[in-house]
């Protein structure tokens, strides 16, 4: 009887080749590598503030983390605001979106925001991050130098800037998409509020193949910011063409090309 059972067990378990996910597919979702960078540490009495970013800071909107603790205990309440600035000699230009208030995340003591880094077109300069904080009974302000990578997220055309404000990291599904249009006058970015915008999202699949995806064209909401939506139907490489029509001018076209939707 035992032999019969053994035969049956072998029979039921060993009758076909096996395929595992790992040898058939690449793993999904892939575990992202830890690419976070430490930017600075601020100590004020018992309060310590670690300024971090999930990736290297880049032109355009870039995510910034603040991890705050009092005597090593994560801070649950706090007010952290950041303002990005570009400086060349005595000339300083602040982000057109102004100060960004960081919001608390699910991780204890971590606050997150996405300041916009934008520089005068074709000019060299340095970057600063001004942080203002109130937490753990302490308050203060610090100005920190930061490195900013060039990126696709700010485009310059016909004398004005088109910034991709969000989503900072596009994901599959319906994403709210927001652009900011500004013109630089002296040391100040002024919003362009009279534009009509249309989009064309496109996935290049190679070999002359590709497809678009459903979207809603952005409309002006306030201070040069235009908001719409894109439903990225799959992960992979995408590009978004933005058509900008301003009164009395020829339509401008800018391309946000070469980003990945996860």
């Amino acid at each position: 009887m035992i032999r019969i059972l053994l035969v049956i067990v072998c029979f039921l378990t060993g009758c076909a080749p096996s395929i595992t996910d790992t040898d058939f597919f690449r793993e999904h979702p892939t575990d992202p590598e830890d690419t976070s960078v430490a930017l600075a540490v601020i100590r004020d009495g018992r309060l310590s503030i670690n300024l971090m970013a999930p990736d290297s800071l880049r032109m355009g909107a870039s995510i910034l983390w603040v991890e705050a603790a009092v005597d090593g205990v994560p801070v649950s309440d706090g007010d952290f605001r950041v303002l990005s600035k570009w400086a060349a000699g005595a000339r300083t230009v602040s982000s057109p979106l102004g100060t960004v208030k960081l919001v608390r995340t699910d991780r204890p003591g971590r606050f997150e925001g996405a300041p916009l880094f934008i520089a005068p077109h074709g000019e060299e300069g340095d970057w600063q991050l001004q942080i203002t904080y109130t937490a753990g009974g302490e308050s203060g302000e610090a100005v920190l130098p930061v490195e900013i990578q060039s990126s696709i997220w700010v485009q310059y055309t016909d004398g004005y800037y088109v910034s991709w404000v969000r989503p900072v990291h596009p994901v599959t599904g319906l994403d709210v998409i927001e652009f900011a249009l500004h013109r630089l006058v002296d040391e100040q970015f002024l919003p362009l509020e009279d534009a009509r915008i249309d989009l064309f999202p496109w996935m290049d699949m190679g070999a002359g193949q590709g497809h678009s995806t459903p979207y809603e064209a952005p409309v002006h909401v306030h201070h040069g910011r235009y908001r719409g939506s894109v439903n990225f139907i799959m992960s992979g490489g995408w590009e978004v063409t933005v058509f900008i029509q301003r009164a009395g001018t020829v339509q401008d076209t800018v391309y946000f090309k070469g980003f990945t939707v996860s």
Partner: peptide, 13 residues
């Protein structure tokens, strides 16, 4: 979807 072109990122749906 794994393109044979290296410049095309992997696609998944």
């Amino acid at each position: 979807m794994f393109s044979v072109f290296e410049n095309i990122p992997d696609m998944y749906l």
